[in-house]
């Protein structure tokens, strides 16, 4: 783990690095893509990927999955009609006042 120390990464982060099995990598893969893993976990996944061709493929294809879904989920913009409907809905149902 010396390379990590040399790069100034703090010891307590390095100490959380674990040997992961493939199933554990699966559990962390989504957060690995979204950048929500702690440094130690990110390094743990990275080290496993260096050694494991299957997980490398899975993680890469999961990234493709997520990017495909992102494009597909794109919501249509709010139409003018929907905008006017919502405004009249809100103003016709004024909470107090009238």
């Amino acid at each position: 783990m010396n390379i990590f120390r040399r790069r100034g990464i703090v010891d307590h982060a390095v100490s959380g690095i674990a040997m992961l099995n493939c199933k554990q990598v699966n559990e962390l893969a989504g957060d690995y893509h979204s950048g929500e893993l702690s440094l130690a976990k990110r390094i743990s996944v990275y080290v496993h990927l260096l050694m494991c061709v299957h997980c490398r493929r899975y993680v890469k294809q999961l990234g493709v999955t997520i990017d495909s879904v992102k494009t597909l989920l794109e919501e249509p913009a709010c139409s003018d009609k929907a905008l006017e409907e919502t405004i009249s809905h809100i103003t016709n149902n004024k909470v107090k006042k009238d």
Binding site: C22, Q24, H54, C55, Y58, Q61, V64, S68, T71
Partner: peptide, 18 residues
């Protein structure tokens, strides 16, 4: 915890292709 049914290599390998 190791793969018993490893991932297949995807023919359509990019979001654009998919």
């Amino acid at each position: 915890g190791h793969w018993s049914l490893p991932p297949a290599r995807w023919e359509l390998a990019t979001p654009e292709a998919i």
